[in-house]
Design a protein around this nucleic acid. Sequence first.
DNA 1: GGTAGGTTTTTGATTGATCAAATTCGGGGA
DNA 2: TCCCCGAATTTGATCAATCAAAAACCTACC
Lengths: 349, 349
Amino acid sequence: MDQDTTHSAVPGHRPTVSSVAAMAGVSRQTVSNALNNPERLQPETLKRVLAAIDDSGYVRSAAARQMRTARSSVLAYRLDPIRDGIGGIVLDTFLHTLSAQAEGQGYRVMLYTADSDEAELRQFAALTQTRAVDAFVLVDTHRDDQRYRWLSENGVPYAVFGRPWPGDEETDDDGAHAWIDIDGSAGTAAATAHLLELGHRNIGFIGYLHDGATGDDRRRGWEASMAGAGVPPRQRRALDSSQRDGILEGADAARRLLDAGATAFVCASDSLAVGALSAAGPEAAVVGFDDSPTAAALGLSSVRQPLEEAAGWALGSVLAQIDGAHSTSGTSRLLVPQLVVRASSRPLS
Amino acid sequence: MDQDTTHSAVPGHRPTVSSVAAMAGVSRQTVSNALNNPERLQPETLKRVLAAIDDSGYVRSAAARQMRTARSSVLAYRLDPIRDGIGGIVLDTFLHTLSAQAEGQGYRVMLYTADSDEAELRQFAALTQTRAVDAFVLVDTHRDDQRYRWLSENGVPYAVFGRPWPGDEETDDDGAHAWIDIDGSAGTAAATAHLLELGHRNIGFIGYLHDGATGDDRRRGWEASMAGAGVPPRQRRALDSSQRDGILEGADAARRLLDAGATAFVCASDSLAVGALSAAGPEAAVVGFDDSPTAAALGLSSVRQPLEEAAGWALGSVLAQIDGAHSTSGTSRLLVPQLVVRASSRPLS
DNA sequence: GGTAGGTTTTTGATTGATCAAATTCGGGGA
DNA sequence: TCCCCGAATTTGATCAATCAAAAACCTACC
């Protein structure tokens, strides 16, 4: 069956760089160049080789390539178990976009799991030592994060979705790392301004306490807008509330704030907003955060995070690092989210 | 700097099978055997080699291994963009479990995306041709699915979460493929029986139309339980409703069915159930489907899919196929979901 | 003591692509 | 006409592991 191992296309065997070369009447290196350095080939040769590649259905072996180049063209992403029903979507969208965009650049995303920081560092070691992945995309930042340091020390490219925590700079020994984040403050500020324009003045803020920073950030925008509108601190304090993230918690908070005279709510998450919406009924105006499908379904105005852009940046950042430009400090960005106005943006009656 | 390329442990270079061999005073093949066929080594030699592996920190190169064995120890999973806010969680949990369990078996999960069937077949070709992945785990089945055929014809192991559609058998040329699914009918039957026990008799069904089968399946369980309880067909028809999946749709349906005399609802998804809960208020009893975090947060009784088990089966199935046992027909399973009772299971007052 | 038979270990070859260096090819310029 | 130089292409070696087959090593039995 395989006694005819000559250069023509052997049915059973998958095409290799050599078989394609034979088919196009060139050497294997020329085929390799056609894929990696097309400009080195004479236009005519290039065309011929590409044609041969095309109709042999050749796909180059990632393993062989990786072996020679010490590159895998794979990015690692840690998949966490689900936490919040509605908000989990955010990272889901991020991951999908990252994966889709990576494919466009010839990269793929590989998952790993870890239930502790130490476990994650072990994964780092296993994944990088064999060069199974080229870079990491981290999304769940927390205080005293060991991961940046490990990756920096081992020279592994990585990008972070989520700004560093205050006080983390010292941990990160080789200086600041590249990160991108959503300017939650700008988002809630826009939401608050929007409600102010609709005539509301007693705008309550329903925030959450998680690890801290994200919730605080979103509060800041509301606070600033309210202060800018001349609402005195005392009143602002009465309109401010914090609790765990969740639908029920949002409903409770909304009831409390309604008693305090609120006519509209800016919420730090769609979960909270859905709760507020159900508790406050059709009278009050509500704006959520994340623009989840649930928000769209319920006609809930919400602040939309530009996740596509964030994913694109993360990809671009790690690719740049992989391609040698190791000084990516200073390229960090803060993205401004967009307010999506829907039926729940009711004017003050 | 690297003029000393002899066999002893060179600091800068990562350990290879040869460097470890030199360190342990054996040949490279012996090191390979220590990892892949430990029983072939003399206990004493094995111990010495393992020690060398251990303190050199050696990890074997996935690429080199893959090249020789034509195995990658990677599973492929298609990551779709999010559709429904609440229900999307189901697959998220499935994926996380799959990934975590796979790691336990030395496998990893790689993502790919595709926005059409043709695109997915192209991905199949690209991923399998280079043996970048060993198997596929498919989750979103639909009518006239070309994927089974392609994978079967090309001898690629795969497992399916979701039963084949009626009429699909002919499409799949080499006979039935292995699949696992949740017995939605059993789930809604249990939910209905539970509500009947609480004294309800006019139990409405809020179902959805998607691609068809899943929704129908879930309706069947309700229908059977109701028929078993002696509710006449005419009345059943009045208590039955179908619409698109979503919170608002669920609320609308609940209102309609309340008018028809319903005192309790069995819903085909948590989204619908959340809607029904909001529309029907605290009087009616509601049971959802999927046991999403949202259901837990709202105190919504729901039918819990045993996703861990499904993921475990899918993994076991593809691993068995990879390890040669190509006759996996007949190993398909239908898992019985569990009813989780919460506050929304109110007795008939 | 020699050798058959089994176990343990080693050597040689291979996987597919790419880097580095060598070779061929063409067009000016002397 | 010959030689040199740059562009285009080819050859040789290599990446790190594993398979297949050969070699070394025992043990036991005639």
